[in-house]
Design a protein around this nucleic acid. Structure first.
Length: 446
RNA sequence: GUGGAUGUAGCUCAGCUGGUUAGAGCGCUAGAUUGUGGUUCUAGAGGUCGUCGGUUCGAAACCGAUCUUCCACCCCA
């Protein structure tokens, strides 16, 4: 039997999991501090809940779950004959695996609207699945950490979420740039440039400005059928680096003015609050997911070659498709795998992440092994992680096992120790050792 | 989904234009050392050369398919 893993998925070693838990712990702690509560949703959703929410591209990346039973006899034979994969798929698959945490959350809010009170602030740390082609920092199974609040239009939440980004990355010691933009500012620019109906295409093109430059963006805009005159107008706006100069370009377009006012208000909330990371208004920031309607965010590491470490935005009508219109919401997501990779690359995990027991007890012979078993029990009763090596005898083996496991101490028991009612406790890092009673050891290891 | 690279011991990698029994370092196991790990020395184990098929007297090497990983797109965390 040849063993292997589906592509884009991974196992985690004990030390890796210790690091991940440390990272998730910090993120979760910040979420709780800002008064968000945890929820969970199932791995699978009805396919109808997921399809159409992420655009055509997203539908292609959805993992579908094959129906149980004799699914072929109930399949759409006509779709099969005409090689229509989409129709055929829906006839043999009614469930899919979650693609992100936001859409399932929207479904959750609608279904539990009588059990939650608005504004509802929740966080959710769970894996999601995408049938994307894997690359570095890009997997088919990966964790997202989402914080969202639904049921309020207050821009104080935008400010709060920026604070959460700032707080988490400061605690993780990763310097980041938090970029902020507004979706309607983008559509407003498109309107002023006379291409209001093509604003989404414009957005996708200018999103790449830092990657392909002005020339590249212009080329792409031309390919998308946007006239040169309109392009010039667009680039007038893109050249503006701050809000004030941006404002001077907007004549009297009420929609754009209002959006700009929203961005300004977010900055006003954060004024004098001493963010530890850089917050930047960036008119070129665009985010793919179709459902954002207001402010949008993205976080990138200052000095690491890694895509975005997180993103989010305001979606004023996400629950509408599930039958509950006009519930505004805003949220952000942390990309756990990428943050992990940055932490690893920069050596930012604490060195003392304890993944093994605090102490390993080593016995010298069968008689002392019986005694050692009772010692381990007492240490465990005191709430200290302790283990007993199963085979008495060779100390070399027991030492090696203790080191490999990451134990801080080893406690050796032989004739001498049994007579004196002690154990020989050795600090594996410093090499110091003492003869101590069980009580003294518990005191020392607490 | 498109284009391109990659795969040899647990890990990192050698292996010439196809030619005896496929190597090294690290790691692993045992011993030196029957009350002390990390250092040192000695010995040892470990490979269907990603998989399947083809070309050839002969394939780790050449060709095809497939899978994995990686890179650039697309998109995204």
């Amino acid at each position: 039997m040849k063993v292997g893993l589906p592509k884009g998925t991974r196992d985690f070693l004990p030390i890796e999991l210790a690091k991940r838990k440390w990272m998730f712990g910090i993120i979760e702690e910040v979420f709780k501090t800002y008064a968000y509560v945890p929820i969970e949703t199932p791995v699978m959703e009805n396919l109808s809940t997921l399809t159409g929410k992420y655009g055509e591209e997203g539908d292609r990346l959805l993992f579908k779950v094959l129906n149980n039973g004799d699914y072929l006899s109930k399949s759409d034979d006509q779709a099969y004959q005409s090689k229509d994969s989409n129709s055929f798929t829906t006839s043999i698959s009614k469930r899919g695996m979650r693609y992100d945490l936001t859409v399932p959350f929207a479904r959750y809010v609608v279904m539990h609207r009588n059990d939650i009170s608005l504004p509802f602030k929740r966080y959710q740390i769970q894996p999601v699945w995408r049938a994307d082609r894997p690359q570095k920092g890009r997997y088919q199974e990966f964790y997202q950490c989402d914080v969202d609040v639904v049921g309020s239009k207050s821009l104080s939440y935008e400010a709060e979420l920026i604070q959460i980004y700032d707080d988490v990355f400061a605690r993780l010691n990763i310097p980041v740039i938090i970029r902020l933009n507004h979706r309607q500012l983008l559509s407003g620019i498109a309107g002023i440039a006379g291409i209001g109906d093509q604003w989404l295409e414009m957005t996708m093109a200018i999103d790449k400005l830092d990657k392909i430059g002005e020339e590249g963006v212009r080329k792409e805009l031309t390919e998308r059928g946007i006239a040169e005159k309109a392009q010039d107008k667009i680039f007038d706006f893109l050249a503006q680096k701050d809000l004030a100069s941006f404002r001077s370009l907007i004549l009297n377009d009420p929609q754009v003015l209002a959006s700009l006012g929203e961005v300004e208000k977010v900055f006003a909330y954060l004024e004098n609050l001493n963010l530890k990371n850089q917050l930047q208004f960036d008119i070129t920031l665009a985010r793919g997911l179709g459902y954002y309607t207001g402010c949008i965010f993205e976080v990138t590491a200052v000095d690491a070659e890694m895509g975005s470490l997180g993103g989010g935005g305001r979606y004023d009508n996400l629950t509408g498709v599930f039958g509950w219109p006009d519930v505004p919401g805003v949220g952000i997501s942390f990309g756990a795998e990428r943050i992990y990779d940055v932490l690893e690359a920069k050596g930012l995990f604490p060195a003392d992440l304890q993944n093994g027991p605090k102490v390993l007890v080593a016995a010298f012979d069968e008689v002392s092994h019986l005694y050692a078993f009772k010692c381990v029990s007492k240490i465990r009763e005191a709430g200290i992680a302790a283990d007993l090596y199963p085979d008495p005898g060779k100390l070399k083996k027991q030492f090696k096992y203790a080191t490999d496991l990451g134990c801080a101490y080893i406690a050796i028991v032989g004739d001498e120790e049994m007579q004196n009612n002690t154990l020989n406790l050795k600090d594996l890092t410093s090499g110091e050792q003492d003869s101590l009673t069980i009580e003294e050891i518990i005191q020392r290891l607490k």
